[in-house]
Each structure stands twice: as C-alpha cells, then as structure tokens.
Design a protein around this nucleic acid. Structure first.
Length: 484
DNA sequence: ATGGTCTTTCCTGCTT
DNA sequence: GAAGCAGGAAAGACCA
C-alpha cells in the first residue's frame, strides 16, 4: 500500500464493527416503494425504469434520475441496476433473481432520520447519493467507493483533507455537505423529515420521465465501448475506437471503462492530449493491479459498483474469465479487432480454436474412448476455489453471484447458487453441474484447509457462507487493492 | 503403467 | 417440504 496522506485518516473498517454486524437486516423500507432483492423491481408503484426504444440513441435513456435517487430500495440492487445497464434493458431481461437469504432491504432515506454520527455504512452511501442528486453530479464521478465503508462516526473524525484525499474533485463539497448534515441534525425532527421525503416522492413519481443524457451520467465511454463491441455495424464512436490501445494492453474491459470513467472527460470533446492521457492511465492501471475492478467489486461488500461493466445480456463482463468458457468468443474481423478492446489474451481460447491449434501441434490428448478431452481437462489452475476467488474479484459476478461478507477474514457468500454452478459448469464444459455438486466439491476443501468452517457467531448468514483458509491464496490482496 | 490430485456423481442423514 | 449442509464412496480425468 503506497504511503499517502490518507494514512493519517481513519482507514475504512472492514472487520464487522458491532453496528454493522448485519447491515442489511435493519429495514425501514416501506412496502410501497421497496426494491426487493428477489425481483430487483418494485411490484407496486411506478417503475423507475422504462425500456428504451430500439430507435433510441444509445446516448439517452428514458428514466427519472430523481426517482432512482429517491426511491427506497436495496442499495446494492440500486447500483447493480445501474451498473448492469439494466436501465437499458429492464424489460428485456427475464433473468429470475434468486432471493438473497438475508433481508437486504435498505432504506435510502434512513440517513435523513438519523444523526450523522449514527450513520451506518449504508446510510453514508445513501447520503452521498443524495448529495450527488442535489448537486446534479453524476454519482459515477464521485469516489463513492472511497467512502462506502465508512460509518458516520468515522467520517466525524476526518478532516477536510481526508475527504480530499478520498475524492480530490468533490472532497470539499462532500466535507461541507457532511458538516451541514451535522448542523441540521440537531433541529431535525422525524416528522419534518418524513414529510419532506413524502413530498419528494410525490413530486418525483408524478413528474414525467426525463431524457437523461448518458454523457451527463458519465456513461458515454461505456456506451461507446458497448456499441463498438457488440454492434460493430453501427457508426463507430470515434472517441473510443480511435484510442490507440492495443489488444494486449487490455486484459479487461472493466479496467478500460473504469479508467476512462475516472478521467471524467467528455468524450465528445476529447483532445489528442486527453487521448494520450487516457492511454497512459490505462497502462498505469493495468500495471498496478490485476484490475481496478477487483478493488471496487471486492471492496464494496455492500454491493456497490460505481461503474457498470456488465454489458452482455447474461450479465457478465465481456472479458470475464467466467465468460470465456460460457460463451463462444466473438469471431471478429481484423477491422473489428482494431476497435475491440475486450478480447483478453489471458483467457483460454475457445474450444474449437484451442483444439485446432493443439491439433496442429500434435498435442491433443485423447480419452480412453478416443474422444478428445474436454478443454477444461487440459488446463491447470482451473480449480473450483480459484474460480470462486476470481469471481469475487470480478464485478460481473461480485456481488451479484458471490460477494464478500468479510474480505479481511476471507468470508464470502454465494448469492446465486445455481448461477454460480452454471458458471462453474460452463467453465468445465459440464452442463450437468449443479450447486449440490459444486458444494460437495467445496466441502472437500475443508480437509485441505482451503476452506475453513465459518465461525458461528451469528455475524454471518448460516447458509451459503464460506471462509477461505490458509490453504487458499490470492484472495487477501483485495483488502490491499481496495485502499488504492 | 501407476499413483496422487481434483473433481464429479450419487447417496443418506441431518439442519434450517 | 424445500434448500442447504456434511460427509462416505466410487469413479473419471488429468498430470508427473
């Protein structure tokens, strides 16, 4: 961890502090406007999201940002909705979301009725969303992830410089807003707050939907990459496609988009110098850590995903190692390859190509029955626990499929067991994989101390929770990356 | 060819 | 009753 002034600031606490032993169990969510973790969308009341007409430009979507900000909902779900681009395909996605075992409803307005020094980490995030809304700041541009693990009490101990360390752009604003919140908390009554919130809700839900410019949300780079990757026949977005980035420099599209998003540049006015800067940042980012996405995804146990990287209908990062076995790699023409930033050389070749190349080398190993062995059987480093570890680092699967309960202790939870099993099965070319089988394989890890029993302290859910043991490695770095 | 490793598959019994 | 957990047993696939 690099030395920085931030060291003087209280570090985010990841070990479950008493007040966040089970942050999602406290629910003040009203039944009328709650996003349930099982459906993602409220069954009653107006939907916050509407599908985009195919004729719509990729630059805009029909929604009400005010609604998004105000609605009581599960925070992880909220950000996941956004980061998954579900805004663009809410009514096109029929994926059934399995309920998360805990009651994970979190009230986005709860912070309003509490003193800032009582804010839990969820309240801090909700408050920051509110600040972003009130100041018309695309929340992707705020370093929300740098604050997402702080409680109100911890923020109280932070100086303005600490805020600036965490967010050089909006640190001052966040600091002053926090001070305002402290001042206001003394004379705020529950009734007035609730009354104001109800007014907001009425105003929000009765207001006509607005057209939101993707650029203003900071999503233009992402949309451009989607367009250039998935729909190469569309007019090429010059701002991205002209980046002189070579394929081998981009092991991960999430790195690209996140670095681009951190540039906070407007792609429509990208200057040559900005282009150079963006590429330099990319290279720096790629040399620093496996991916910025890892730190973001793994670091945000509350399920935050500051910028979406799930561009494909199955919700996976196009460059995800989990996807490599699940989907055939797009066969891109040289022209398309020139513009594509999503093909990773780190991942396995598609089966047909790998076997093809192996055939050429005369290295194909055959089973007893004479059939070529499955690709998964050729590969090393393809262990189940490694697969899960990597899934915990991948924003396309963490926190939607697996998520950290306590990254310091190595405690994680399987959110969507059957989906994880399908992904594992896809990785191993085994369509018959089920969670039952997967979990049996996981239980063999207890003997090797790759997994160890989860302490039954009541701190974690009783089911679908596992803990890495001394036999597992490579998961610890998430707690380092998240500070970077 | 062999033995070790890592699953995979099937199963029973138990707990939540 | 469903889902998940725990673990035995056997077998397949891979690898050195």
């Amino acid at each position: 961890m690099p030395n920085s002034p931030a060291l003087a600031c209280p570090a985010p606490i990841f070990a479950p502090a008493p007040q966040r032993a089970s942050p999602w169990t406290a629910s003040l969510a009203s039944p009328q406007s709650t996003f349930s973790s099982s459906t993602g969308l409220s069954s009653s009341g107006p939907s916050a999201f509407t599908a985009v007409s195919p004729t719509n430009s990729a630059n805009s979507l029909t929604t009400s940002t005010a609604t998004i900000y105000n609605r009581l909902m599960c925070i992880p779900k909220l950000l996941q909705e956004i980061s998954n681009n579900k805004i663009l395909r809410t009514r096109m996605n029929n994926t059934a979301y399995k309920p998360i075992p805990n009651n994970e409803k979190v009230d986005l307005a709860r912070f309003r009725v509490k003193d800032p020094n009582e804010w839990l980490v969820d309240d801090v995030v909700a408050w920051m969303l509110d600040v972003a809304k009130r100041h018309n700041i695309p929340f992707e541009e705020m370093n929300m992830h740098k604050f997402s693990m702080l409680s109100g009490q911890e923020m109280l101990t932070m100086s303005e410089d600490c805020f600036l360390d965490r967010d050089p752009v909006f640190g001052n604003l966040i600091f002053s807003e926090f001070r305002k919140a402290l001042d206001n908390s003394e004379d705020t009554t529950l009734d007035t707050v609730i009354g104001k919130f109800v007014d907001d809700e009425v105003a929000t839900t009765s207001a006509p939907p607005t057209i939101v410019d993707m650029t203003s949300l900071g999503l233009q780079p992402m949309m451009s990459s989607i367009t250039s990757t998935i729909q190469p026949s569309l007019p090429q977005p010059p701002q991205l496609s002209q980046l002189p980035v070579m394929q081998h420099q981009l092991p991960n599209l999430s790195s690209l988009t996140q670095v681009l998003s951190q540039q906070t540049f407007n792609p429509t006015i990208l200057t040559p110098q900005q282009t150079v800067n963006a590429v330099q940042s990319l290279n720096q980012s790629l040399n620093l850590t496996p991916s910025l996405a890892s730190s973001l995804a793994a670091g945000l146990t509350s399920g935050l995903s500051p910028l979406g990287v799930n561009y494909l209908p199955n919700g996976l990062n196009p460059a995800s190692p989990l996807l490599a076995a699940q989907m055939p790699q797009p066969k891109l023409s040289p022209e398309m390859l020139k513009y594509s930033c999503t093909i990773s050389t780190d991942y396995e070749l598609p089966e047909d190509r790998s076997s093809e190349s192996n055939d050429l080398l005369g290295k194909v190993r055959k089973n007893k029955d004479g059939k070529p062995r499955k690709r998964s059987q050729h590969t090393k480093g393809n262990k189940l626990w490694e697969f899960i570890r990597d899934a915990l680092k991948d924003p396309s699967t963490c926190p939607s499929v697996v998520r950290w309960e306590d990254p310091v202790q190595g405690v994680f939870r399987i959110v969507e067991s059957e989906r994880l099993a399908r992904l594992w099965g896809a990785r191993k070319n085994n369509e018959k994989m089920t969670y039952e089988k997967l979990s049996r394989a996981m239980r063999t890890y207890y003997e090797k101390q790759i997994l160890v029993p989860v302490p039954k302290t009541g701190m974690y859910p009783k089911k679908l929770v596992y803990k890495f043991g001394p036999g597992a490695h490579g998961w610890e770095n998430v707690k380092v990356e998240r500070f970077q």
